[in-house]
Every structure is written in structure tokens, then in C-alpha cells.
Write a protein that binds this DNA or RNA. Structure first.
Lengths: 215, 215
DNA sequence: GTCTATACTTCGATAGAC
DNA sequence: GTCTATCGAAGTATAGAC
């Protein structure tokens, strides 16, 4: 008999809030702790290598050489950890993106930016995460939309001053088409698919050449 | 968060095997059991609603109104369950796809087929799963490549007999471009993104009209 | 300010009773 | 052919010692 799982306490049931619901906030590690940064690094690596579902406090702890509870000291809940990764990454990307889009060939830059393995994989993981953890969905889609808005503005500006010529095609349409397919390509590649990939790259290059000149 | 709880068994560390590694296969439920079909139904629903990471034997059991061990009776490991979902779904889709692609407007059919919410969400979940559970990655990408090959053949045939005119653009390139972006669109939509979506649909319609005629 | 001890829950999976 | 009893590992999270 013994030990059949007794009904435990009502116990806050892990209600998926960021940090703390509204009362007694538990203590957290300082923003500029080296350990904290390491935890974010490790989480990034895990997400890229095995997907968001592979991120657990224990695994992050092992990879970082610390104990699991320490992870919760810096990030009370896993959602907090994911959000920290998202924010750090987004801040870095905003800078990189601005530099790239300012050049003579914004479309080509966009394609390069979005086919970057790391960026594409990240965005995909976060989209999957947004679907799974509704509590951080808003944060994720807000960032994604923000990037898109910046890119759209860059393309529209380039069309306006004649740096690129889309032949009358919608800038927003082209942007989304390129963004989504670059992401898709990288994800397919990651699982070993390859049919048609070379052809898309050639096709896109052809379209970019037509819009921005040069072969 | 669910995530694999792999037994630490000595068992050939060569990675997960489907069903049984090589000896004593445990008993399994019959292929045509009603319960078995229900478990696959429930798993599909869970994957669509909360993502692959939300699929646990316990959750599946609750939703199906059975006990958790019964899930393992039909599907010794969770990977077996995922593979069953994949196979059943793929078989259904092959039929649907063949019917659609045989028509006068294969490109339009392709776009419709791939922007179907359920299909797109599924493929995305399986790609994520392939990344997370490497043991079934091959199975997943093999199916995806098989679908792509069929689609490619359909497009090439349509180009050959003049039903569509791609203006010299690569059929494989166009195919991958449409497939990846349709999937991306659906996923973005699922998390609440919308910038540029209308424009892509219009853009694609424009391109399809050019290739297959008609407005 | 940082980390350890530890609680409690849920996981995948198995053995063997019905 | 189906389900109960139960295991041991791993999961998130909290309290309180340094």
C-alpha cells in the first residue's frame, strides 16, 4: 500500500507568470552577474542545438557548471530565462540589422541577415516557444514585428530613392516572402532536407540582381 | 515541461531506438484497436494546440480517458507515438495532395495545400520535433522530402505540357519558395503577427495568375 | 549578494495482475 | 487484450544557510 501519491497542497500550481505574480518577490541575482550571463549563453546554445523543449533548469545548470536551484535564483521561472535570452539576442540583432540595412543593397543584406543559421534558428525556436508558452507570446511577437517594421521601412526607403526597383511588386510582400522562406530553408537544412535548396538560392539571387542590379 | 525523461539504462548508448532495441519486445496493442486510434487523435490535437513538447504519456492518457501506462502499452516509447502520428497523417496527405495536384492549376493547389493551417502547423511541429528527438529525425525528413519530390514532379510535368509558364524560373526554386513561406505565414499568424501578410497573399496571387493565367 | 538543501510534482517506462 | 501498482529519474521551484 504505502505511499500512493497523496493529494498535495494546493500549492500555487506553477502559474506561468513572469517573475512574480504580485506579492512577495523572491530575491534574484544581479543583472550584471557573470553567472547570469553564462546561463543565458548556455540556454542559447541548448535552444539552437536541441530546441526550446530541451531547456530545463537542470540541463542548463549542468552545462553551466552550477546547480539547478541557482538557475532559479537568477531566473525565478524558466519563462524569465527565455525572455532574458530573447531580449539580449534582440538587442544585439537590432544593432547588426541597422548596420546591414543602411548599405546600398538592403534586399541582399536582408537575405543574408535572415539566412544566417543562428538568427533563423532562433526565430523559429521562439515562434515555437510562443506557441507553447502563451505567457511570453506577446513579448516574442512584439519583437518580431518590430524587426519587420524596421526592415519594411528600409526597403520602402530604398524603393523611394531608387536604390532598388521591385518592378511594382509590394515591398511588404517581398519582405515577408524572403523572411519566411529564408527561415524555412535553414530549418529544413537543419533536419537534413536539401531538395530544391540550391535552386531557391539561385532564384533569389536572380531576383535580387534584377532589383538591385549586378549579377 | 515534459521533455524527455530518458531511462538511464545501460542499453546500448547508441541513442534511442523505436520500440525495442533488439531483444525482448514488450507486448503491444493491436494495430486496429480503437483505443490506439484515439491516442493518435489526441496526440495530434495536443501537438496542434500546445506543441510537441506538451505531449506526455500522462496528458495523452487524460485526454483520451485512459491511464498513462496504457499509452505505453500501445506505444512503448513516446517516439513510437510521434512516428505513428506522422505516418497516419502522411498517408492521409498523400491522397489529398495527389487529388489537388492533378488539376489544372497545380501551383494554386500547392499554395492552398500548404497554407492550410493544420498541415502547416503539423509540419512545423515535426520539424521542431526532429530537432529535439534526433532518433526520429530521419523518418521525418524522409517524409518531407517525399512530399516535395511529388510536388516537384507535378510542377515539372505542368511546365512540360504547357499548363503553367514559370517564365524560365526554376520549378524547384519556386516550389521551395512557396512551401517555406506558406508555412512561415501560418506560424506567424498563429502567434499574432500580421504585418505584410495580406501583401504576400496578394503578391503570390499575382505571381500565380501570371504563371497559370486567370486573375 | 550568492548558493545549497530540499520539497514536491510529473515524467517515461516496466512488471505483472486481471 | 487491458489496466493497476509502482519505480527511479528528472522537472520546477522555494526556503534558508552562508
Amino acid at each position: 500500500m504505502a505511499v500512493a501519491n497523496q493529494p498535495k497542497k494546493p500549492q500555487a500550481k506553477s502559474g506561468r507568470k513572469l517573475s512574480d505574480a504580485g506579492g512577495t518577490r523572491r530575491r534574484t541575482g544581479s543583472e550584471d552577474s557573470k553567472t547570469r550571463a553564462t546561463l543565458i549563453d548556455v540556454t542559447e546554445r541548448l535552444m539552437l542545438r536541441d530546441g526550446y523543449a530541451a531547456v530545463t533548469s537542470r540541463r542548463v545548470a549542468v552545462e553551466a557548471g552550477v546547480t539547478a536551484p541557482l538557475v532559479h535564483y537568477y531566473f525565478p521561472s524558466l519563462d524569465d530565462l527565455f525572455v532574458a535570452v530573447l531580449r539580449r539576442r534582440a538587442e544585439q540583432q537590432v544593432v547588426r540589422q541597422a548596420r546591414l540595412l543602411a548599405g546600398e543593397e538592403p534586399l541582399r543584406a536582408l537575405w543574408a541577415f535572415n539566412t544566417d543559421r543562428k538568427s533563423a534558428r532562433f526565430l523559429t525556436e521562439f515562434i515555437g516557444l510562443a506557441n507553447h508558452r502563451k505567457s511570453i507570446r506577446g513579448e516574442i511577437s512584439a519583437y518580431a514585428e518590430r524587426f519587420r517594421a524596421i526592415e519594411l521601412a528600409a526597403i520602402e526607403a530604398a524603393v523611394a530613392d531608387g536604390r532598388i526597383d521591385l518592378g511594382g511588386l509590394s515591398p511588404a510582400g517581398i519582405l515577408v516572402l524572403l523572411s519566411t522562406s529564408s527561415r524555412g530553408l535553414v530549418n529544413e537544412e537543419a533536419i537534413g532536407m536539401s531538395t530544391g535548396h540550391e535552386e531557391v538560392h539561385a532564384l533569389v539571387e536572380q531576383l535580387l540582381a534584377r532589383a538591385e542590379g549586378r549579377t
